[in-house]
Design a protein around this nucleic acid. Structure first.
Lengths: 366, 366
DNA sequence: AGGATCGTTGACAGCGCTACCAGCAACGAC
DNA sequence: GTCGTTGCTGGTAGCGCTGTCAACGATCCT
């Protein structure tokens, strides 16, 4: 064909335009806003592009248009399977769109987050997804000054930077404790690891529920800054028992800990739920499969990621959601590990949050 | 200071150069190869950049230099915690380097992989990390024609595209079965889900080991294409028992399945390991914590990701490793779930591959 | 029919950076 | 002293694309 090529051997827009018999700028428009072209030219450009196997040069586009098609995502951890669910949702929602995901790991450090934020913002991302509501003042200022849509995920709070999607960890913990109260438990311990802001708020919810009932005691709480694990759940529970041998229930800040507690109970031949009830948090898949099955607070992690990315993309393209703050709620899934001592297992659940139309909500789960 | 700014309000290289009293190209060199500058100019540019808070425009750099500083990563799943460990290694290794990670999910489809590969390659990545050795012919051709370093991860095989890091799933499965044989087990079932190429090779290893011992029977194998889960482990095990009630051990293609089998045994009051031994694969954290503790084949996932990214970056910068194929090996971690019926628990382990940082290959390759 | 409006198209001028090559001083070998 | 070297620096010319604005014909209204 003798087309002239760039050094790199790649097809440029100009070649496509030439083959299609239009100007480069018209070809350019085809890729950004095909509706603006007449049908005739549109099909001509389309087939020319296909024939040549044209792939746009994103760097050139970014340079010329002064913006990128990158969605920055800041999450505190890659290990935690809570985030992998959220991420999966984000990636799923971004697939098929023109936007690509740029992921960075803050390692639970808001200083690191600030640094990464500065880096991201310098590249003019199309949008940003950040975790939580506990940014540094500097980060907060940067976010507010940013000229792109932003979604805060994982929790909801009083003053969103822009959009926000999550649920109340505080309320969720309170609901878990209320459930245990309803089952007749009184000496309810709390086991928590990592103690990031969201876990902290679960602890706050626990404390307030216990205080409301006049049952709070400091030694019912065992926490550590160490990253969570199943093994750690066993260790923390051991600690808890040492301080409080007459425990009748444990609320674990996540499911890994709960599984660890379950195993530890088995090791010590403590029967669950007869002697001690266990409630976890997140409702990971294995909770329903354990023996006994484990009660947990279901959170809509995948949905959270997916909806966050969807909202963000909509906003980037100018269609801002009428409802910028979305509470995805939670649901206490009662299973054997906390079922009532007297009756067997009526499948009571208590849900929280404000279900909303943008997503199919908790009521429809399980 | 009255510096003139670009519309976007951002500081450009030219401004830094002006403040430093050098030409733009000299300033540019500072960021790419500081050694090439005289010490005087180097410090001048450095302080000017710091004073202005200069952040390079990556799009402009990519356009001008005809290459990006992006490492493309193609993995089949974001859910699977095996990959999240690998990813964590990759991200850790990329941190502090100039390269950023671009992640894409092939969803276990080699057609999808081919499509993503085409997309990636068009953007001239600095390097590529791809999962496994089972690409389509077209993908393979693209990879071979690519002018950037490439690392294949997760397994090793005969003809690397470029670099390769992983271990032999086949040998690992054989080692697991050998361990069970050593413990006196004969009727050993296989439970597998998803059945991606790596799980398939584990199955192949199992089959060959069983055949070698004259113990293979088709009905000892239960697999499904369904994605793996703990619950599924229980279900597949139930199936297996139905076909083969006199089973004395189960080799699970991953640890989630193994946990599911353990729970199912508990549900059925089958004692582990007395009646049935269980061996998993990957050695996830919870295996050591379960009751009984669960034997598994340890694989070096984090290290795999980290080393892959490190090797790749080295290669990008022109320092190719002297050993482009790395076998990270595996290790059978014996725990209670498969400990010998007669003796109690001597901590025997059998390792495979060459768990070494930069050295030779395992003898055992087929 | 005349003018206004809309939809469609193209010319031009960069976006911010780096590849390439030339220039220049300092230095050593003959 | 002359001629290469070497080491550092700068000028020029784009990289491939899109924002802006102007121009054009077609359509619509009064």
């Amino acid at each position: 064909m003798g087309r002239k090529r760039t050094k790199s051997g790649k097809i440029r827009l100009a070649e496509v335009a030439e083959l299609a018999g239009v100007s480069p700028i018209t070809a350019s428009r085809f890729f950004r806003n095909p509706e603006a072209l007449s049908v005739a030219k549109r099909t001509r450009v389309e087939s020319a592009a296909k024939e040549l196997g044209y792939v746009p040069n994103l760097a050139a586009r970014a340079l010329a248009s002064q913006r990128t098609e990158v969605i920055g995502v800041l999450i505190p951890s890659l290990t935690n399977n809570v985030f992998s669910d959220v991420l999966r949702g984000i990636y799923d929602a971004s697939e098929g769109s023109r936007y690509s995901i740029q992921l960075s790991n803050t390692r639970y450090s808001i200083l690191q987050e600030e640094k990464l934020l500065r880096l991201f913002l310098a590249q003019k991302p199309a949008g940003l997804i950040v975790t939580g509501i506990d940014q540094t003042a500097e980060s907060r200022a940067m976010l507010e000054a940013a000229d792109c849509p932003i979604v805060q995920i994982m929790e909801i709070g009083p003053s969103p930077v822009d959009m926000m999607i999550g649920f109340s960890h505080y309320d969720a913990a309170r609901a878990a404790i209320a459930h245990l109260f309803a089952q007749g438990h009184r000496k309810i311990g709390f086991v928590g690891a990592r103690m990031d802001p969201r876990v902290q708020r679960r602890l706050d919810g626990y404390v307030s529920a216990m205080k409301d009932a006049g049952l709070f005691e400091q030694r019912l709480v065992v926490t550590t800054a160490t990253p969570t694990s199943v093994t750690l759940g066993g260790a923390l529970f051991t600690d808890l028992l040492a301080h409080q041998p007459d425990l009748d229930a444990v609320f674990c800040a996540n499911d890994d800990l709960a599984l660890g507690v379950l195993f530890e109970c088995r090791r010590r031949e403590i029967s669950v739920p007869e002697q001690i009830a266990i409630v976890g948090f997140n409702d990971l898949e294995f909770m329903a499969s354990a023996v006994p099955t484990l009660t947990s607070v279901r959170t809509n992690r995948y949905e959270m990621g997916k909806t966050a990315a969807t909202m963000l993309i909509e906003a980037i393209e100018g269609r801002r959601p009428e409802q910028p703050v979305l509470d995805l709620g939670f649901k206490v899934i009662e299973r054997q590990s906390s079922s009532s001592r007297q009756s067997d297992n009526r499948p009571a659940v208590s849900a929280g949050g404000a279900p909303n139309k943008m997503v199919a909500l908790p009521s429809s789960h399980d």
